[in-house]
């Protein structure tokens, strides 16, 4: 049984005629100890998908199972015990911490709310976690503004870890950080995963980071998954034209290896016509693509793509 199992999930924003289908029929599983990368451009719905899975945004349709338990429609009270099992790490190390709470308050409140041990046990748990994420031992009684961006991200990680979850949704955890700090945080996340047996849903627009960090990758475009494969397969043999375009657009740090492929035209729009969502930007689109929406189908061992010609 998968740790997390998502079936035909839909999330919509707005009402009446102004409905935005941010997530539009997505299914995937995350196994224990697995890191699933979710990659796509801004506005593709990847962040909404992450928040829907955590039940922070209400799902419109579909099913979310955690450890086999259907949590799709649980109320606040019934959801509370499941919240401990899955946590989130945010992109913005400034906005994701309450500026008026010390680090101790942030971490201790979580433990108190979930009735984790007495004051003494909580204190030792706190010291342990502070050390685990690489923060200085005098951190607990300081406020977020006293820390640098990288350290604040460590605080965010500590908060996500304090309840000992099984799954962590990482929403662009290193995008707001400087390159020299990104590596520190990624290495920390790798260590934590290994030591604590965590599973990650790793959301990022940065293909190079996803390639490094994920076991399996989902490529998302306009609310749908257009390709999914293990990281090695995807980079060796991308099938969907959008995946190929994404790869081609990432600038290489080898200046002797100049980009040759022309960039794809257009930009992500939110209007969905009939047929394939990518057809308007696809260099290989045919009449069939504009008429008939391709479904995600198997194109190899553990490799799926939603393209008629994949």
């Amino acid at each position: 049984m998968a740790l997390l199992s998502v079936k035909d999930l839909h999330t919509r924003y707005g009402t009446g005629r102004q409905v935005l289908r941010a997530v539009d029929g997505v299914s995937f599983d995350i196994e224990r100890g697995e890191t699933v990368g979710l990659v796509g451009e801004s506005g593709c719905g990847k962040s909404t998908l992450g928040k829907t899975v955590l039940r922070l945004v209400p799902p419109a349709e579909g099913e979310i199972r955690l450890d086999g338990v259907d949590i799709t429609r649980l109320g606040d009270r019934a959801m509370a015990p499941h919240r401990r099992r899955m946590q989130m790490i945010f992109q913005d190390p400034f906005g994701s911490l309450n500026p008026r709470q010390t680090i101790r308050t942030v971490l201790d409140t979580a433990l108190k709310v979930h009735q984790q041990g007495d004051a003494g046990e909580r204190r030792s748990r706190l010291q342990e976690i502070i050390a685990r994420v690489g923060l200085p031992a005098d951190s607990p009684d300081r406020y977020p503004h006293e820390f640098s961006g990288g350290q604040r991200q460590r605080i965010g990680i500590a908060r996500a870890l304090v309840l000992q979850p099984a799954l962590i949704v990482c929403d662009e955890p290193v995008s707001a950080l400087d390159v020299s700090i990104q590596a520190q945080i990624l290495n920390l996340l790798v260590d934590l995963k290994r030591d604590l047996g965590l599973s990650y849903l790793f959301i990022s627009h940065d293909l190079s980071v996803v390639r490094y960090f994920a076991d399996r990758v989902l490529v998302m475009y306009l609310g749908r998954i257009v390709e999914s494969a293990s990281h090695a397969t995807l980079w060796r043999d991308p099938r969907h034209p959008y995946t190929k375009a994404l790869f081609a657009a990432v600038p290489s740090t080898d200046p002797t290896h100049k980009r040759t492929a022309p960039s794809i035209k257009g930009e992500l729009t939110t209007t969905i016509a009939s047929g394939c969502r990518f057809a308007s930007r696809c260099p290989a689109a045919t009449d069939r693509c504009r008429a008939e929406e391709p479904q995600l189908r198997s194109v190899g061992e553990g490799h799926h793509a939603a393209c008629h010609y994949a």
Binding site: L54, L56, D76, M79, R83, M86, M88, S96, A110, G156
Partner: peptide
């Protein structure tokens, strides 16, 4: 804001979120 979303993901009650966060 993200820190309120974080508080929700930690399972805090509404009252706690309003008063404390």
């Amino acid at each position: 804001s993200d820190f309120v979303v974080a508080a929700r993901s930690l399972g805090y009650s509404r009252t706690r979120i309003i008063v404390q966060e």
